[in-house]
C-alpha cells in the first residue's frame, strides 16, 4: 500500500519511541504517507492503522485534527497562505486577492488543470517574514510581494 521508501521512513520514526508506543509515530506516518500519495484516502489511513496497530478511527481522529493533512485530493502544489493578524498587517490579504485572481480560484479550491490548490492557513510562527505562504507543507516562502508571488508561481512546473 505504501512504497518501501515510505515504510523505511515510518520505521525510523517508530524507532524514536518506546517499543510499546508505536502510536507515537502516527503523525509522522500520516505525513510520510501523504507525501507519497498526495492525500490521505481512507485506504491509506486504514493501512497506517494496521501498520501501527491502531484502530482506524483513532488514526482518523489524528488526521482530521491537524490541518496540514489533506483529507481530500489536492493539486500538485498546495499553497497555504497565512492571513493571521501579523501577516495581514503586512499585506497578506492583498496577496490573497492577488493569488485568487491570478489562479482564478478561491481558498480551498484547485485550479482546473489540477496544478495548484489554495488554502488559508493559521499562524506558521514566521511573522517576521510576513506575509508568508507554505508550499506543499514544506517550503516557506516569505516577504511576499506580488513580484515575489509571480516569481514563485513561474517556477512551479
Amino acid at each position: 500500500m505504501l512504497g518501501s521508501e515510505s515504510l523505511k521512513k515510518i520505521d525510523k520514526e517508530v524507532a524514536k519511541y518506546p517499543p510499546d508506543q508505536k502510536q507515537s509515530a502516527v503523525m509522522a506516518a500520516l505525513r510520510i504517507a501523504q507525501e507519497e500519495k498526495g492525500w490521505l484516502s481512507p485506504e491509506t489511513m486504514g493501512f497506517v492503522a494496521d501498520y501501527l496497530d491502531m484502530e482506524p478511527i483513532a488514526v482518523f481522529e489524528v488526521a482530521s485534527f491537524y490541518n496540514m493533512y489533506n483529507l481530500e485530493p489536492v493539486g500538485k502544489y498546495k499553497i497555504t497562505l497565512c492571513t493571521n493578524l501579523p501577516c495581514a498587517l503586512s499585506g497578506a490579504n492583498d496577496v490573497a486577492s492577488y493569488l485568487k485572481e491570478k489562479l482564478g480560484i478561491g481558498f480551498n479550491e484547485t485550479t482546473a488543470d489540477g496544478k495548484i490548490t489554495l488554502k488559508e492557513g493559521e499562524c506558521f510562527g514566521s511573522c517576521g517574514y510576513a506575509p508568508v505562504f507554505l508550499l506543499n507543507n514544506r517550503k516557506m516562502c516569505g516577504s511576499l510581494s506580488f513580484a515575489e508571488v509571480d516569481r514563485i508561481l513561474a517556477e512551479l512546473e
Binding site: 481512507p42 489511513m45 484502530e55 478511527i57 482518523f60 481522529e61 482530521s64 485534527f65
Partner: peptide, 20 residues
C-alpha cells in the same frame, strides 16, 4: 474504539471510521 471524535473545535463530530 469504534467511535471517535474527529475534526476539531466546533467542527468536532462523533463518528466511526468512514462507513463502519
Amino acid at each position: 474504539m469504534e467511535l471517535g471524535m474527529a475534526g476539531r473545535g466546533e467542527h468536532s463530530e462523533i463518528m466511526p471510521f468512514v462507513s463502519k
